[in-house]
Design a protein around this nucleic acid. Sequence first.
DNA 1: CTACCAAAGCTG
DNA 2: CAGCTT
DNA 3: GTAG
Length: 652
Amino acid sequence: MDEDIPSSSQTLPPETPPKSRHHTLDLSNIPPTLILPAHLKPEEQREIEKKLTRHRVPLTTDVSQARVFIGKVGTKRRAEFELRSRKLKVEEVVQAKRDFSTNALGEPPTKRTKIGGTVADSIAHDGETTDDEPASSSETEDEFSGAKALTRPKSPFEVEETAPVPVLFEHAPHDEMVWVVRTDWLNECSDIDRVIPLGKHLVFKGRVVERQTVTKPRKDIKSIFSSSISKITPASQTNLATRPIGRDILDRAQSELSNEASKPKRKPYHTGGHGSRRFEGKTFASSSQQAGNVASQTARLLQQMTSDYEGEDSDIPPPPPWVKKRIKYSCQRFTPASGPNDEFIELLKKIRTARTLIDDQIGVRAYSTIIAAIAAYPYKLTHPREILRIPGCEDKAATLWVEWKNTGKLQAVSDFENDPAMQVLRLFYNIWGVGAKTARQFYYTHHWTELDDLIEHAWPTLDRVQQIGLKYYDDFLSPIPRTEVEHIASIVHQHATRLRDPRATCTLVGGHRRGKSASGDADILISHPDHSATAHLITALVASLEDAGYITHTLTLSLAGTQRSQSVLPFRSTKASGGGFDSLDKALVVWQDPDWPTRSADLAANPATRNPRLHRRVDIIVAPWRSVGCAVLGWSGGTTFQRDLRRYAKVQ
DNA sequence: CTACCAAAGCTG
DNA sequence: CAGCTT
DNA sequence: GTAG
């Protein structure tokens, strides 16, 4: 799915004067229409969207509103499947003859009531609707029910103006109907610029028996998965994990993920403006200025507060030296593990996540800078001016802080957390191996909203690590207590000494080194004074821990260090300074302690007892002796720290 | 107003 | 090889 | 969103 769609005016034939666009075939009165992406190449899907938009078809992506489904659908069975997979229960309605006939031009077009009014209105306000993802659910929530309430004996969704108009989507007053139509129909209509009967292009017509309205509770995921996802590291295995789900789903899902892969190149840093147009006006998106909202109020307040204190800064603490010197690289300053402004920072991080999910990379960067800067500020903030003089922070940061200080929350964060679409995106984004892009794809092009949907429909299309990430979704999300991390580290250490000798060292890095009491994964750094002892140690370690039953899966294995250090030392002074961090061997693995307190008793009672211990994400890093210090730093600092260190090194 | 941007593994 | 993820 |  592309985030931005060209204006419909672009698609007009060159010879057509702008005004006459109203003379092109107007299908604005057909029911809300949804494109079925299955079997459509990205270009094709775009093409269809364009056409539909040009003919002013009320597009929707919301299954609960869609009545017409258009796509490359070969058979009735397929059509039913598409509907069923969208949680739509339907019963087929056999075609009456008149559906194929044309209307007898009874009343003059002008007298015709637009069905429901609201349906047409929903797009009428905007002749230039360019939304790729038309109307979000909240915008059109009630419109169609309004149309339903209108009880004209027979209320076909008539097409106005054009002479004998085929009755396209006829339905009895009280039934909710859906139609599945082949794209050919649209193409033919579009070609001759006239409405033609659906005829053979109507693949399926049905009455809605039940629509899913509330999201059902999630089943126990683990019980659904088949037992085997390959444990082997990806490099050594060519095919995917076994597929537990039936092949009827398989063939569909198979065809669906090929969507975005081969689409036209996007601009390097971000698409279009900041983020997708889909989120224009949302407070958690960029440049959302609604008059009278909290943000602008606090903006004024900020003005006031800062100017009030003009000239005297007696009650704000003296800036730390790095603030004075306007040092902009986080690596040049001391950043404590937990600072006095963490609460505020957590909120900023949420905004940053929101920006990630809406594909606003610039926003992500900007907030990362702000977060890093404030995290390094050693005092509890008391005045907006303090923020203003921190390098990397400006009006926006100060405004947010004032809002937070005054209200105890941030509107942008609340909106983000309450936004239903965002909730779905976050759900998917939390799967290890699924990034923002894929999360959006799951939701916006396939309309999956729960993990169950992925299990049922997407499973075969997920890559190996995503399958693992999904399988252990809950486990990976639960924080690892410090004691457990230490225990894991001690075992890794033990294996390291066994494989080499007792001089092997083990250091906790990452979140735990930074003093957190629990964190998402365990980062363990292994080293050894003998340089030759560290080479290939990672492979041996992983194998050993696998044998011992601790490592259940290897997500990735990176041998960058071993490879590099075998050759020349990366000591090209100035320019090569970028290397260093990543040139260490590392293994990202799934860890499960094979033992638990009542194990023998449990197994005696029931030999099939499952290991109750949670699966943990563990990163094992092997560093050659001379770079342990650097490695500790590298893995303990935040992302911005690392990035800044690279930039800093480049400049010096 | 424009530039900002880590490096490397995995998948298709 | 491009795109995505960590 | 911020810096230049």
